[in-house]
Simulated scan of single mutants.
Amino acid sequence: MKVEARIFDLVMGFSFLMAVVYGFWTWGAAPHGLEPVGTVALALTGGLALISGTYFRFVARRIEVRPEDNSDAEVSDGAGELGFFSPGSYWPVGLAAAAATAGVALAFWHVWLLVIAVVLLLVAVGGLVFEYHTGPNHD
């Protein structure tokens, strides 16, 4: 996770630096002074990268060192099971369709379709999350 934290730190530093450069550049070039939209967008991009990098840094402290974080690691150190991935789930297809419907609803600003898409998104996310949930064991 340290690698990911460094990547987001670089994005954060670049975004904040470009926000300052962009602010000074537009201050001198624009007839009405500072152009606020680009400056704020770059500053918010840096803030989002700061939040993500901080999260990865905190997670890196709590988990054991991964092969990606070890400079002396071999390729074989990363071998083994990485997690459980459902091979025959149809929920991701439904989730993609619901997200596409929400995107179309936002693009054409059909509020009725947006409400339907949000409900479909919630159902699809719930189905995906609880697909293998069997409930408490009452033996």
Rank of each mutant, 00 (worst) to 15 (best):
residue 67 P to V: 07
residue 106 L to P: 03
residue 122 L to E: 05
residue 12 M to V: 02
residue 115 V to M: 09
residue 64 E to R: 15
residue 125 V to Q: 05
residue 92 P to Q: 01
residue 46 G to A: 12
residue 129 V to G: 06
residue 1 M to Q: 03
residue 98 A to V: 02
residue 4 E to Q: 12
residue 126 G to Q: 03
residue 83 G to W: 05
residue 128 L to C: 09
residue 116 I to K: 06
residue 110 H to K: 14
residue 136 P to V: 06
residue 72 D to P: 03
residue 128 L to S: 13
residue 85 F to W: 12
residue 128 L to G: 09
residue 112 W to Q: 06
residue 28 G to W: 10
residue 28 G to R: 05
residue 122 L to I: 14
residue 124 A to F: 02
residue 75 V to H: 09
residue 84 F to V: 13
residue 109 W to E: 15
residue 9 D to Q: 10
residue 135 G to I: 13
residue 68 E to D: 15
residue 128 L to M: 08
residue 67 P to H: 05
residue 53 G to V: 00
residue 12 M to L: 03
residue 106 L to F: 09
residue 50 L to F: 10
residue 14 F to T: 08
residue 133 H to Q: 08
residue 22 Y to G: 05
residue 76 S to C: 02
residue 45 T to K: 09
residue 86 S to W: 11
residue 112 W to H: 06
residue 98 A to R: 01
residue 37 V to T: 15
residue 70 N to R: 12
residue 75 V to Q: 11
residue 16 F to K: 13
residue 11 V to Y: 11
residue 86 S to E: 15
residue 65 V to F: 03
residue 123 V to F: 00
residue 88 G to P: 01
residue 25 W to K: 10
residue 138 H to K: 15
residue 125 V to D: 03
residue 119 V to L: 04
residue 127 G to R: 05
residue 10 L to W: 01
residue 6 R to T: 14
residue 43 A to S: 14
residue 70 N to P: 04
residue 74 E to D: 13
residue 23 G to Y: 05
residue 111 V to K: 14
residue 126 G to H: 04
residue 111 V to H: 06
